[in-house]
C-alpha cells in the first residue's frame, strides 16, 4: 500500500480511452441491470391511443413512443438485457471451450493438436452469417440458439490464441521445472500456463462481447430474432427501420444504445490490449 504503486495506476486512469470506455460500457450495463427497478413493467405497456409520440414532448415519454404506444426510453433500457445476455453468455461459452481446447492442443501437441486445429480450420473456412442463416432455418430463432451459434463460431479464436501462447511458454524454464518435480498436467495447465496467457484472452473477450452485440442485431435484422414481445436492441432497430423517416426516434435511440455500449466495450478492449497484451497478438 505504498504511494509509489498507486501513482502509475493513477496515470493510466487519465487515459481518455479508458475513462470513456468505462463510463459508456459501465453506465449502460448498470442501467440495463437495474432497468426493472427504474421502469417496473414500463417496457411492455401497449397504448394504441398514444402511438408514435415524438420525444421530448411529454415528460412521461421523454424518448417518445413506438408504433404500439410503448415508452421508447423504457424499452431501450430494458432491451439491453437481451443484447448483453447474448453478448456475455456467448463469449463466456466460447472462452471456456476455446481455452480448454487451446491448452490441450498446445500442451500435448500430436494427435489432439491436429484434431483441434483441423476443426479450427474448418470453422474458419465457413462464412459466418450464411452459416447462421442456415442454422436458424434448421433450429429456429430465439435466444438459446443464437447463443449456441455464436459460441460455435467463436471458440476457435480463443483456441488459436491460447495454443499459440502455450507453444511459446511450454518450453520455458518454469514449466519445465514444474514438470520435472512431478506437478500434475492439469495443475500445470490451469495454474502455471493459464495465468500467463490470460491477458490476450481478456482483451479478445471484451472485443467479442462488442462484436456479438452487433451480430445479434444483424441476425435480428435478417428476421432471425427472439420473441418480439421481449424488447431487444436488435429487434427495435430492425422494426424501427420502417419508421426511420416519419418517426426517427423509434430506431435512433436503440441504435445509439448499441453504438454507445459497443463503443464503450471497444474502447475498453483497446485500452486493455495496450495494458495486457503489449505484443499485440489480438490485433491480428
Amino acid at each position: 500500500m505504498s504511494v509509489t504503486t498507486i501513482t502509475p495506476r493513477f496515470a493510466r486512469f487519465r487515459n481518455l480511452e479508458f475513462i470513456l470506455g468505462a463510463l459508456l460500457a459501465g453506465g449502460m450495463c448498470l442501467a440495463v441491470i437495474f432497468s426493472s427497478i427504474i421502469f417496473p413493467g414500463g417496457a411492455e405497456k401497449i397504448d394504441l391511443m398514444a402511438r408514435l409520440l415524438p420525444p421530448f414532448v411529454k415528460w412521461t415519454h421523454p424518448f417518445g413512443t413506438d408504433p404500439l404506444g410503448r415508452d421508447v426510453l423504457a424499452r431501450v433500457i430494458t432491451g439491453g438485457k437481451i443484447s448483453l445476455q447474448v453478448g456475455f453468455i456467448s463469449v463466456a461459452g466460447a472462452v471456456v471451450i476455446g481455452v480448454v481446447m487451446g491448452l490441450i492442443s498446445g500442451y500435448y501437441r500430436g494427435f489432439w493438436d491436429m484434431v483441434v486445429m483441423r476443426f479450427a480450420d474448418v470453422q474458419l473456412a465457413m462464412p459466418f452469417i450464411l452459416l447462421a442463416i442456415t442454422f436458424i432455418a434448421i433450429a429456429g430463432g430465439g435466444l438459446t440458439n443464437m447463443i449456441i451459434l455464436l459460441i460455435v463460431s467463436q471458440w476457435v479464436q480463443y483456441a488459436r490464441l491460447v495454443r499459440g501462447s502455450v507453444l511459446a511458454l511450454r518450453d520455458r524454464e518454469f514449466i519445465l521445472s514444474a514438470r520435472a518435480i512431478g506437478v500434475r498436467d492439469h495443475r500445470i495447465l490451469f495454474q502455471h500456463l493459464l495465468p500467463n496467457l490470460i491477458g490476450p484472452v481478456i482483451v479478445l473477450m471484451t472485443l467479442n462481447v462488442a462484436t456479438n452485440i452487433l451480430l445479434e442485431s444483424s441476425l435480428t435484422f435478417l428476421g432471425l430474432g427472439v420473441d418480439p414481445l421481449i424488447p431487444s436492441w436488435g429487434g427495435m432497430l430492425a422494426d424501427g427501420r420502417t419508421y426511420l423517416q416519419n418517426a426517427w426516434w423509434v430506431s435512433v435511440f436503440p441504435g445509439l444504445a448499441i453504438l454507445l455500449t459497443v463503443l464503450g466495450l471497444n474502447l475498453l478492449g483497446d485500452w486493455l490490449r495496450d495494458s495486457l497484451d503489449p505484443t499485440g497478438r489480438t490485433s491480428r
Partner: peptide, 11 residues
C-alpha cells in the same frame, strides 16, 4: 399471457 414465436416464413 401470450408468448410470440417467430419462425422463418417457409419453416
Amino acid at each position: 399471457t401470450v408468448t410470440i414465436k417467430p419462425y422463418e416464413t417457409n419453416v
